Simulated assay, not measured.
Amino acid sequence: MLTWLKRIAITLLALLALLFVLLRQQGWQTVAAYTGGGFARPLPDASKVQAQNCHAQPLRVMSFNVMYGSAVIESLAATFRGGSTGKDELPWSVRLPEIRERIASYQPDLLGLQEMGEDDAIHAIVDAGQYSLVSYHLGGFQYGDSALLYKTARFEPLDAAQLWLGNSPELPMSLGFRRLSMIRYANWALLRDKSSGFTFLFVNSHFDNASVNKEPSATLFRERITQLAKAMPVIVTGDFNTTADTERYRRFSGTDVQPPLLQNAYTLAHSPTVEPALHPDKRIDHILAGGPCPFSAEQWLLDTRPLKNGKMMSDHDALFTILQVGEPATPATNPPQP
Rank of each mutant, 00 (worst) to 15 (best):
G310P: 15
P328H: 02
M312L: 14
K308I: 02
T333C: 06
P335K: 09
V325D: 02
Q324F: 00
E327V: 06
M312H: 11
K308S: 15
D317F: 11
P336L: 02
T321S: 08
H316E: 07
M313N: 02
D317Q: 07
M313D: 03
D317Y: 13
G326A: 08
S314L: 03
T321Q: 05
A318M: 15
P336E: 02
V325P: 04
L323G: 01
T321W: 04
N309K: 06
I322Y: 13
S314I: 04
G310C: 13
T330I: 07
N334I: 09
F320R: 04
T330R: 13
A329Q: 03
K308A: 15
F320Y: 15
N334T: 10
T333P: 00
D315N: 09
P336T: 04
E327G: 04
V325T: 11
A329D: 11
P331H: 07
K311L: 07
L323K: 05
K308Y: 03
L307K: 01
R305L: 08
P336D: 04
D315H: 02
K308F: 00
V325G: 05
D315K: 01
V325R: 05
H316F: 10
P306H: 04
S314A: 14
I322C: 14
D317C: 02
G310N: 14
K311H: 14
R305Y: 03
G326W: 06
F320T: 10
P331E: 13
T304D: 14
S314T: 08
Q324G: 00
Q324H: 11
I322E: 15
P331W: 10
T304E: 14
V325Y: 05
E327C: 00
Q324Y: 03
E327I: 05
P328Y: 05
T333N: 13
S314Y: 03
P306V: 02
K308V: 12
A318Q: 13
L307M: 15
M312I: 00
S314N: 11
L319Q: 14
F320G: 08
T304F: 06
L307G: 04
N309M: 13
P336W: 00
T330M: 10
L319F: 11
L319C: 14
L323Q: 01
L323V: 09
G310V: 13
D315Q: 05
P306Y: 03
D317W: 08
H316V: 12
L319T: 15
D317I: 00
V325K: 09
T333V: 08
T333M: 09
A332P: 05
D317S: 08
D315P: 03
N309H: 10
K308G: 05
P328L: 01
N334F: 02
G310I: 14
A329H: 01
Q324L: 00
M312T: 06
K311T: 02
K311C: 01
A329N: 07
K308D: 12
L319P: 10
K311A: 12
G326V: 04
A332Y: 01
T304V: 14
K308P: 07
M313R: 15
P336Y: 01
H316Q: 12
N309P: 09
P335F: 07
T330D: 09
P306F: 04
L323P: 07
L307V: 09
A318I: 03
F320A: 13
M312F: 00
H316G: 11
T304I: 14
T330F: 03
M312C: 00
P336V: 04
D315Y: 03
Q324A: 09
M313H: 05
P331C: 10
A329K: 06
F320M: 10
A332R: 06
T333W: 08
K308H: 12
I322A: 14
M313S: 09
T321F: 00
A329R: 11
